[in-house]
Design a protein around this nucleic acid. Sequence first.
RNA 1: GCGGGCGUAGCUCAAUGGUAGAGCUCCAGUCUUCCAAACUGGCUACGAGGGUUCGAUUCCCUUCGCCCGCUCCA
Length: 595
Amino acid sequence: MAEPKTNELMEKIVSLCKRRGFVFQSSEIYGGIQGFWDYGPLGSELKRNVKELWWNAMMRAREDVVGLDATIIMHPQIWRASGHVDTFSDPMCDCLLTKRRFRADQIEPQSGIAYHYSGASDPSTGKQVAEPYSVLLPPGKPPESARRTATQFYAGRGLAQVELQGERTEKVEGSTRYNPENGSLLTEARPFNLMLKTYVGPVADEDNIAYLRPETAQAIFAQFKNVLETSRQSVPFGIGQIGKAFRNEVTPRNFTFRSREFEQMELEFFIRPDEAVEVLAGGVAQAAAGGWKGSPASDWGWEVWHKYWVEQRVQFYEDIGLPRTSLEEYWQKPEELAHYARATVDILFKFPFGTQELEGIAARGDFDLSQHQKHSGKSMEVFEEELKNAWGRLEEAKRQDLLRRTTEARLQALRKKGVAEAEAGPQAAAEAKAFVDKLARGVYIPHVIEPSAGADRLILALICHAFHEEEVTDDKGKKETRVVMRFHPRVAPIKVGVFPLLKNKPELVRKAGEVRDLLRPHMSVFYDDAGAIGRRYRRQDEAGTPFGVTIDFDTLGETPDLKETVTLRHRDSMKQERVPITELVARLTAAIRGA
RNA sequence: GCGGGCGUAGCUCAAUGGUAGAGCUCCAGUCUUCCAAACUGGCUACGAGGGUUCGAUUCCCUUCGCCCGCUCCA
């Protein structure tokens, strides 16, 4: 699709969201607030449906996943353990000349001669600019080029003619204060902390700082032991949670796609480390064998589990109306992975503004639980009698082989982290021995597979995917545009519209009310008796209501054969059929579940 | 946070240094028959604040929001 077209399309979608009550700007009457959005009547139904479908698919339909609903504000130590306090704040600085922005910690150190200026004046007007400025000149470049750059800078400060003042030079080694591209001085580095801060308790001082969670996952890790001990679950099992998260995004963009307050649907699925799987099952299933398409088996290691969850999640999207063709899987390359991740797959949706991430499914090893064990001093280990017994039955050669391979794996990991070879060897040996010793006693820290989805992004994807404009020709040959939201009936905010053909006939209205009350216990129903019937159908098209039921005089018995039947109108095809009222509930509930 | 563009009714678009107009939508009503029909009536706007002015939607400044680019997205 062409560029301007996609923007137009997005604008139409945003407009419809507001017009029909899917999404409003937060605090709109006060001018709005950037990066915050509200869901209106249709949007809140849609979101509720999506969250409920996720909860059902991930938890209620499974034996091995349980739920959690944790607080948004937690002990600040959680965010130290998780790494968010450190990694969520990036020092940034800008080029004074081009305004280009840099991560201050990623600028390559420069050497050369710095040309400092105290200011500049305009000889034609006498105007003065007292702002100091500097240019770094790489060795071998003529001084003129530094003066040209400085002139450009002061010209940008409003001088027509520039006379540089107070030039002096200085030798500079390994400085990160200058733009590597043009030598221009950069602004001071300013920290950007992406976590929203607040204070707990009445006194707002440093001791009381707390953070609004930037992800829901950490609460799951922090409550891992409590859930394990109360839920009658054992590894492998998962804990799922739906909840708000907050990030002080630098640039919220693309409608609700990147919001500062948003909702996540996260699962942490805890599994045995591959070594434990090997001891218990005698080997680890290979992902290449394709077992991840089936049901979980005892010999699954992290790779198969990871692929399994990717497949589960894609199937979920298919089930709620996002076909595979609208999605993309992006398997992160090894060099792109965060240090704690073994593999990460992004599930992307083709939005009108670009193909963007809906969900990330990461294999995170035991990083998170280990971090919390370290920081809290509380054990995150699990014990399996069965594992201890299996180890007892293991031949000595196999035990030694496992230790040798574990040591080798640790060594590789340490090398990758840049640990010096002399230290890496003994450290790897010690770590591997400690790990295998625990394994022998049936003890380990679980590893985790994390499918983490953005609820609001999914809502936006569903809205974008549902949006259709089509040319319709009416009886008189007049062409017009029909806007229809082709939501899957499962997620549609309203399942059925109920209409008396005419409002001014009490017997029609009464009968329509009866049909509405008949359907209401089973699904969300919208009753509408205002205006022409065609208008009411079209209104429901924009709301994405898949079915319409119309009560007419035949329903009342004007044509005896049609007594107690109604018109059932289908949103997508605009086809109509005659259906007995007694069959409506069964027909509609089947269509909503099935379709 | 930087640079550029934009901001009049729910939407699309007018006009004007003298107090805002249309079409569609929406609401109420008329209509015995199925895809935004017709007719009658009605509601609704100069993003916000300040300045200049007798008077500002219009000119100036600030601010907020939206779009695009930069940056960021563990």
